[in-house]
Structure formats: C-alpha cells, structure tokens
C-alpha cells in the first residue's frame, strides 16, 4: 500500500519526492558552501542510517541523502537539528524554529565559490556575504535562487540565478610604484576587458567604465602599484534562469554596490515577491516574477528605502535574450497574460 504523503509539505521541509513512492531525498542547506568538515559525519550518518547508503552532492551545493522513507523523516529532522542550529542560526544568524527540520525550501541554497579563503582570484569572502544574505532571505516562502561568486570569473554561475552576486574590486593605482612593465595591461587584455594601456608617460591608463572589477591587474602587478581598496564591491546579475520554457542568462542589474546597498536591496526581495504573487507563494523562478511585474516595478521595489553608496550604478532597463525553444512563446491571448499591474 502506498503511504499517504503530502509531497508539497514534505518538499517544503526540504525532502524531495523520488520515483519510489515513499522515498524522499533530504537536502541540507550549506549557505556559502563551506562548513566545518565535522558535518560530513552527520550527512554520512543520515545516508547510512535512514537513506539508501548513497550520497548526492546537490547541484546547488546542498548535501543530499537520497532514499529516506517518509516514516523516518521525523527521526531525521531530530537528528539534523544541531546542524540547523549551527549552520542556520549560529553561522548565519537566521531566526527560525529548528525542531522539525527546515521550515521552507523556496529560497534555495545560496551557492558560492570558495572565495578569498582560498582562491587567488577572489575579491571577497563569499561565505561571509552568503551568511548575511541567508539571514535576509531565510526562512521565507518565496522562491529565490542566489549565488555568490568571489570574482567576475563567476565560477558560482551568478549569470544563471535570479540574483547572482559577484564580488568585485575597484583597484587603486599608485603611479609612483608603477614600473611600466605592462604586466597588468597584458593580463587585462588576456583575462578581462582590455581596459588598460601603457601611455606615453610609461605608466598605465585605464578606461574605467569598462572595468569588470576582477582585480587581475592587482594580482599581475610585480610592484603593488595596483592595490585593492579596503572596501569591497558587489555586482548583481539579474534574472538568469534555467528551465524548459525560456532559459536565459542574467544581465547586469547593479554594479559597484557596497555591502549595505546590496543587503538593503536583497531585503526587499520577499516584499516584491509577495506583491507580485498577491501573497500566494509559487515555486517559480524570480525572473518570471520580474516578467510579470515589469522591470521598472521590480527596480522600484528593490530600491525602496535603500540609500545607495555613491559609486553604485543601476540598470535603467534590462533586455534579456532568451533561448527560444518555441518562438513567440510570449505571444498569447490577453486572458493568459500574467502581468501584474
């Protein structure tokens, strides 16, 4: 007999339905994708005790235990409580009830590259900002996909998130330390946007408007003439998505945001979602919400109450290019339009 399962509720509890009617896969969130290795014992224990003995590395960097019988979910939820407390409450300062497992699945795990704790290219500590973002978006019933990349190389695929965060720097140039070797010029041409050139003073000129903020010039410089400032900056890539209908790469929404500006805007996401969906959460990509609201409304919501830092720049409009599996998929009877007014 098939056990009676409320799969929507179980999904909300972060147990995903499987092909086997009463087996589910737990997804443990790892915001920022870096945790104490001791937790590997916990996921291993879950997989081997209640799961089918296999372990899946989630595509959104969750720790997944497939094959958990529905009847065991309460035991698993008891068992993961210390993990939830440690990772969600202690690490990310999230205020939530931890006794019955995860309260929501909708804000998906915040993905991140390893960032500056390890990577020589990174501009930012991706975990720190992931933890702060987790606090802003979790728990809450509205779907959102966020990732954090430590640099514009975007290994965490910010371009395919609802809101993809990219850590940037605005290097400072100390002309007196420059030996005019051209290492930064060559590096920028090879790895970035070719914004540097050697000038007639045997020093470097920069076309700052096209700088992606990667910091490759700093890394390449033999003398420290290029230096990262003490402040870090964020870029938001907006509205990227995968899916069967109209996948698309995100586009630049906001650039050179300080942490305050970034977090202020992200805090507005649930309000925006709530407005678009009329208070009825639906598990769909954030890009679709922006489609329904229109970019201008989205922008108003996101900027509401936010004092942007002076360097920040925001897209006046955004034009996405979608993969058109079916051309003119957007042309349909008025009655089927979902645009929110």
């Amino acid at each position: 007999m098939v056990e009676d399962c409320n799969i929507k509720q179980m999904q909300n509890n972060c147990y995903r339905q499987s092909k086997v009617p009463d087996e589910f896969m737990l997804q443990l969130r790892v915001p920022g994708a870096l945790i104490d290795a001791k937790w590997l014992d916990v996921i291993q224990h879950i997989c081997q005790t209640w799961g089918n003995g296999s372990f899946h590395l989630g595509t959104r960097q969750t720790l997944n235990a497939p094959g958990i019988k529905a009847q065991n979910i309460p035991s698993v939820n008891d068992y993961i409580e210390p993990y939830l407390k440690a990772v969600e409450c202690d690490l990310c300062n999230v205020q939530m009830e931890t006794r019955n497992g995860y309260p929501y699945i909708a804000p998906r795990n915040i993905m991140a590259c390893i960032g500056s704790v390890h990577c020589i290219n990174a501009n930012i500590n991706t975990q720190n900002i992931s933890h702060k973002l987790e606090k802003e978006i979790y728990p809450n019933p509205y779907h959102i996909k966020i990732s954090v990349s430590g640099c514009p190389n975007d290994c965490a695929k910010a371009h395919f998130q609802d809101l993809g965060i990219v850590g940037c720097t605005r290097p400072i140039y100390d002309m007196d330390r420059c030996i005019g070797c051209g290492a930064c010029v060559r590096k920028c041409e090879k790895a970035a946007t070719r914004v540097l050139s050697l000038n007639d003073k045997h020093k470097v000129s920069k076309d700052a408007c096209c700088c992606v903020g990667c910091g490759e010039c700093v890394t390449a410089c033999p003398t420290g003439a290029w230096k990262r400032p003490n402040r870090i900056f964020y870029r938001i890539i907006l509205g990227g998505r995968t899916g069967k209908q109209c996948p698309r790469m995100g586009k630049l929404f906001a650039n050179w945001l300080t942490e305050d500006s970034l977090l202020g805007m992200m805090r507005n996401w649930p309000k925006f979602s709530d407005w678009v969906l009329g208070g009825k959460p639906v598990y769909i990509h954030g890009g679709h919400l922006i489609d329904r609201a229109g970019y201008q409304r989205f922008k108003e919501f996101m900027l509401d109450g936010v004092t942007l830092n002076p360097e920040a720049i925001i897209a006046e409009s955004v034009n996405w290019a979608e993969t058109e599996y079916r051309s003119n998929i957007h042309v349909k009877p008025l009655s089927k339009h979902q645009t929110v007014k």
Binding site: S116, I120, A122, N123, I124, N125, G150, T169, G215, V218, T219, C221, G224, K227, R228, P229, N230, I232
Partner: peptide, 10 residues
C-alpha cells in the same frame, strides 16, 4: 602595514 595592500584579496 598597508591594509589590503597584498597581491590577493584580504
């Protein structure tokens, strides 16, 4: 000491 003056971030 020059804060953030190193080759790599932080």
């Amino acid at each position: 000491r020059i804060p953030s003056g190193g080759r790599y971030a932080q």
